[in-house]
Amino acid sequence: MEVRTIKVFTTVDNINLHTQVVDMSMTYGQQFGPTYLDGADVTKIKPHNSHEGKTFYVLPNDDTLRVEAFEYYHTTDPSFLGRYMSALNHTKKWKYPQVNGLTSIKWADNNCYLATALLTLQQIELKFNPPALQDAYYRARAGEAANFCALILAYCNKTVGELGDVRETMSYLFQHANLDSCKRVLNVVCKTCGQQQTTLKGVEAVMYMGTLSYEQFKKGVQIPCTCGKQATKYLVQQESPFVMMSAPPAQYELKHGTFTCASEYTGNYQCGHYKHITSKETLYCIDGALLTKSSEYKGPITDVFYKENSYTTTIK
């Protein structure tokens, strides 16, 4: 009895394709271990004539594949690729409408935090270190965002349907971005203890939790000093293409032309909904596939993004 075979390709990165001759009487799992086709788990399936010449994702289970996976995804987590594939199996079914010149995501599976993050990423200057993220990001900007969303979920250790947080998501993504040249110098002034300067680099240099107003941050924000008295913390120097200011959701007025974009969060910790506000020729609110415009805006804002380049204080 002759062994019926077909020729397929296996890959971990969709760049390096490895030619395989597979036995049609055995499952993919018996031949390769966990195997995925377009995100779908085909591990328990036997090869079919229609699979001839198709590319299958496999887990990096030998040295060659491990090197290829690390170079593309910059992670050695053995569960990463499987999590990416199972997320992709959902995100490829989502709709990605162009809204006001940006790629958004039609609401499904509690994905409003991903839509808000995706919209924000198209408006701030950011370059990702893992080629996987950078490639998928370019495709997302062009309207094909399924891979990018699935990668975000995998890097953030999230599953489809789980509630997510924009600030946490951005923080994970910033860790995989090139923020080497970003720098922030802060000064804390206390009447009792004097003053202390701190220099922050990388992710810490672009994120701040405690106030939404970048102007206020430049002037000074009140913080408790270690001595128990009130101290003032203010920005001395900022070198970065953008800054992200966050605070627990509270009524906040966004003035046209003073910011790049913002995240609105309605609801409580267990259950809520994100919308995205962007400042173009007027203010726009993007909620999944829905767009509304207004000249002014007041609502429960939790993150505001500002364009920056270089700032030095005039406070002496």
Rank of each mutant, 00 (worst) to 15 (best):
V3Q: 13
R4D: 14
T5S: 15
T5Q: 12
K7V: 10
V8R: 04
V8Q: 00
F9N: 11
T11Q: 06
D13P: 08
N14M: 13
N16F: 06
L17K: 10
L17D: 07
L17R: 12
L17P: 05
M24K: 10
M24Y: 10
S25G: 11
T27S: 08
L37N: 11
L37I: 11
D38V: 12
D38H: 11
A40E: 15
A40M: 15
V42H: 11
K46T: 11
P47R: 03
H48I: 15
N49Q: 13
N49I: 14
N49M: 10
S50V: 13
E52F: 11
E52S: 12
E52V: 14
K54I: 12
L59K: 13
N61Q: 14
D62A: 08
L65W: 07
V67L: 15
V67F: 14
E68I: 05
E68N: 07
F70M: 15
Y72G: 07
Y72V: 06
H74C: 07
T75W: 05
T76Y: 13
S79C: 08
M85F: 04
L88K: 06
H90G: 12
T91V: 08
K92E: 07
Y96H: 05
P97I: 13
P97G: 06
P97N: 06
V99C: 11
N100G: 15
L102F: 09
T103N: 04
T103F: 09
I105W: 03
A108R: 14
A108Y: 06
N111A: 03
C112S: 03
C112Q: 06
A115K: 01
A115S: 08
A115N: 08
L119T: 05
L121V: 12
L121W: 00
Q122C: 06
Q122Y: 01
K127D: 11
P130D: 04
P130K: 04
Y137V: 07
Y138T: 14
Y138N: 15
Y138P: 08
A140E: 00
R141A: 13
A142G: 12
G143N: 05
E144V: 07
A145E: 04
A145I: 02
N147L: 05
F148Q: 01
C149Q: 03
A150R: 03
L151P: 05
L153S: 02
N157G: 09
K158I: 03
K158R: 07
K158P: 01
L163I: 00
E168K: 08
E168R: 12
S171M: 11
Y172H: 11
Q175M: 09
Q175T: 08
Q175C: 08
A177I: 03
N178H: 08
L179M: 07
C182R: 04
C182D: 04
K183M: 09
L186A: 07
L186Y: 14
N187V: 12
C190S: 01
Q195F: 11
Q197K: 14
Q197P: 09
T199N: 07
K201C: 11
K201D: 07
G202M: 03
V203W: 14
V203D: 06
V206L: 04
M207A: 07
Y208L: 06
M209K: 15
M209E: 09
G210C: 00
G210Q: 03
T211R: 05
L212Y: 02
L212V: 12
E215S: 08
Q216V: 08
Q222L: 12
I223Y: 11
I223M: 10
I223E: 09
P224T: 15
T226D: 11
C227Y: 00
G228C: 01
G228W: 01
K229W: 09
Q230F: 15
A231T: 03
A231Q: 01
T232M: 14
L235I: 10
Q237G: 06
Q238F: 01
S240F: 01
F242S: 01
V243I: 10
M244I: 05
M244L: 06
S246E: 02
P248Q: 13
P249F: 00
A250L: 08
L254P: 02
L254F: 01
H256Y: 15
H256I: 15
T260F: 08
T260P: 00
C261P: 00
A262R: 00
E264C: 06
N268Y: 15
Y269N: 15
Q270G: 12
Q270V: 10
H276T: 04
I277L: 06
I277V: 10
I277T: 04
S279V: 06
K280W: 08
K280S: 14
E281P: 04
T282M: 11
Y284L: 11
Y284K: 03
Y284C: 15
I286C: 00
I286G: 03
S294C: 14
E296G: 10
K298E: 15
I301Q: 01
T302Q: 00
V304I: 13
V304W: 02
Y306E: 03
K307W: 05
E308I: 14
T312F: 13
T312Y: 11
T313I: 11
T314P: 09
I315K: 15
